[in-house]
Design a protein around this nucleic acid. Structure first.
Lengths: 210, 210
DNA sequence: GTCTATATAACGATAGAC
DNA sequence: GTCTATCGTTATATAGAC
């Protein structure tokens, strides 16, 4: 075995390593059941080092979720902000992005953790609701609002309708996580079908020959 | 204190009382965290008595879920079987039924339990998937198929599209359970909006003035 | 007395403490 | 790493209905 010094100062690398170890363990065992000591061991640091970079176990978890979710939510927001084309195209872009995002295994695990353990950790529940879930829902609502404003979509309440758009995608992912892969819920089949469904659900009324 | 005999023979009443106690405790604490001894105490029996009527803790849970879900699923199936009117009306009936069903607090709790604990209890996961979740999904698919056959709905894969119809309703309920009631996800507002959304998502194409 | 629903008590695996 | 407590499960004794 190579002679590793007992201590190494690597201030820059530590947080990322701790978060990676935390994600792995949290995903496998859930939040409450994961001991910070195991995270420390997996990251090759001491418990005290974790507390140097994160105020608490909950803050570590939040940091991990933020690191995964924020860039993706931010990307979606940028996409919306700068978009010039039709809202159907914009929604297509969102659909493609979501297809990739939702494919990340850790995301399913995080959603499951929040659902299961939110009751025992109101702090985490509030964080996830406000910073992640509602932020995502508002993004979808903004796209819907844009479509309404441009006359592409029928008038409706954007934030309410956003739930009809996004919840099936989350739920489909969650079901894969819980029941395992099944042909009936295969995302490859479900997502395009759902996309067609929401385009029709949102479409503006056309003049009809009675 | 009243002189209660230590034993009472009430063969008919026991299972229902045990199930009622179980539902209450499982709903509050989840499956794994609920001790059979507490269920026994709440039901006023001994642990062994539970085993007279149920083969295991998991079987007790299944029996409780069956008792709650089966009559309701059966009612929906009867509704579909005997229906004479238009499929939009039928879907309205389903929507009304679901609004009531989903309002039952225990149902949200059960869904949460299954989603969060299925990983540790594959037996329960398989039961719920096959006997409850897929049975419900197939019911919705049958309605969609009926609409397609009658030319009311556009052609689509019924089982896949059923997920777009039903998942938001489940998810909306789950969110109430996890994050508590919020104006943005108020079912009173969400369900009618979602119903309008799915009718449009399913509607057959009409001839359009280009 | 006989039959059986029910309680008491013990077993064994497993998880958590130290 | 060992010890201990907990909890699902089961064997056995007993009370109550007929």
């Amino acid at each position: 075995m190579s002679a590793q010094p007992k201590r190494q100062r690597r201030k820059e690398a530590r947080p990322a390593e701790i978060m990676a170890a935390g994600l792995k363990l949290f995903s496998g065992r859930g939040f409450a059941a994961t001991r910070l000591e195991d995270v420390a061991e997996a990251a090759g640091v001491s418990k005290a080092t974790i507390y140097l970079y994160f105020d608490s176990k909950a803050e570590l978890f939040k940091a991990i979720v933020r690191e995964i979710a924020s860039p993706r939510l931010g990307a979606i927001e940028s996409l919306i902000d700068g978009y010039q084309g039709s809202t159907v195209e914009l929604l297509t872009g969102l659909h493609r992005t979501l297809r990739d995002v939702v494919g990340v295994p850790e995301i399913g695990a995080i959603i499951k953790i929040v659902l299961s353990e939110a009751g025992n950790f109101p702090d985490i529940a509030g964080f996830y609701r406000d910073e992640i879930a509602f932020r995502g829902l508002r993004n979808v609502a903004r796209i819907i609002q844009r479509g309404i404003d441009r006359g592409e979509f029928r008038p409706c309440d954007p934030l309410t309708t956003a739930q009809s758009v996004i919840f099936p995608i989350i739920m489909n992912r969650l079901i894969q996580e819980v029941f395992g892969p099944m042909p009936e819920t295969d995302p490859q089949k479900f997502l395009p079908n759902h996309f067609e469904f929401i385009l029709r659900g949102l479409a503006a009324d056309k003049e009809v020959i009675q």
